[in-house]
């Protein structure tokens, strides 16, 4: 029995390793492509980041980012890549939850769901603030 459990833990480790690796590779490629488009369009403009004014209006919302991607706007594509990168460790928690469920480890399914709930609360809280 103990042997069987450790075998499944090993499976989970391989899957999670791949989730993390793919998440980083894919999101970094998207950020890079977006960066190239951004520099091509805005590279010669004057940079000003001295004062905090927040990011441009067109990438403030999910809809805005989506519209920006379709119209090939560099910063929208970068922002999409960054969102994907932020989602990578969250996806890792989701996969771990599934893994613990397959192992029938109820305690750790609960703990993983609690972590997901906190991150979700953070999303809501961030929006409100």
């Amino acid at each position: 029995m103990a042997h069987k459990v450790s075998f499944k833990d090993k499976d989970m480790q391989v899957v999670i390793g791949w989730v993390l690796r793919l998440g980083v590779i894919v999101s970094m490629c998207i950020v890079f492509i977006g960066g190239m488009i951004f520099l091509w369009r805005h590279g010669r403009e004057v940079a000003d980041h001295h004062t905090f004014t927040g990011i441009p209006e067109f990438i403030r919302t999910a809809g805005g980012i989506f519209h920006g991607i379709i119209t090939i706007r560099g910063r929208a594509i970068i922002q999409f890549g960054i969102a994907l990168l932020i989602a990578t460790p969250i996806l890792r928690v989701i996969f771990a939850t599934i893994g613990f469920a397959l192992e029938k480890d109820r305690l750790y399914v609960f703990i993983s769901l609690l972590v997901l709930a906190i991150i979700f609360a953070s999303m809501i809280g961030g929006h409100a603030g």
């Binding site: 977006g34 951004f38 910063r75 970068i78 922002q79 932020i86 890792r92 991150i119 961030g126 603030g129």
Partner: peptide, 24 residues
């Protein structure tokens, strides 16, 4: 990674993550 993601979602929505700076 997970710890940073939990606060990054807040920074992202507040507009603290600027694509022009974050990209490089």
């Amino acid at each position: 990674g997970v710890t940073a993601a939990a606060s990054a979602v807040v920074y992202f929505q507040r507009g603290y993550i600027d694509p022009g700076i974050s990209m490089p």
